[in-house]
């Protein structure tokens, strides 16, 4: 069969095949795993927050903040990119019981910026 004929008759089949049974992948970095995770209620305060991304990220412009219910930062030092440029971590001060907001912003190595936030709770929560 000639290429153009192959194309005309094969294209719909290929298109159908393309949208079935395929896992979503990265490009632009998004969190794959958070520690502590979003919505988690912890008995003891964590010493650090780590986010694992689904694509490599740049150290430059990486932001990771943990804020208490009043918006006060609870992090110690700048965030660090590690583990094959896939994780972003920051050390935490001794957290008191209460709700905390994690705010992150990263640049993937494809140069695209992504950001987001989530909550976790230490102790009984609601404080």
């Amino acid at each position: 069969m000639k290429p153009l004929n192959l194309l005309i008759f094969g294209a719909p089949l290929l298109l159908a095949a393309s949208i079935t049974s395929v896992p979503a992948a990265s490009a632009h970095a998004f969190p794959e795993q958070e520690t502590p995770s979003a919505g988690q209620r912890l008995a003891a305060p964590p010493s650090e927050v780590t986010i694992k991304f689904d694509a490599p990220i740049e150290q430059l412009f990486a932001k990771l903040e943990v804020l208490d219910a009043n918006g006060k930062p609870e992090t110690i030092g700048p965030p660090e990119v590690g583990s094959g440029a896939l994780t972003l971590s920051v050390k935490l001060a001794a957290l008191k019981p209460g709700d905390y907001t994690v705010k992150w912003g990263v640049v993937c190595i494809d140069s695209h910026h992504t950001e987001g936030s989530y909550l976790f709770t230490v102790g009984g929560g609601g404080g």
């Binding site: 095949a17 393309s18 949208i19 395929v22 979503a24 992948a25």
Partner: peptide, 11 residues
């Protein structure tokens, strides 16, 4: 199709 496969997933 390869790129679409890895960018859109199964849905």
């Amino acid at each position: 199709l390869y790129t679409a496969y890895y960018s859109l997933g199964a849905d």
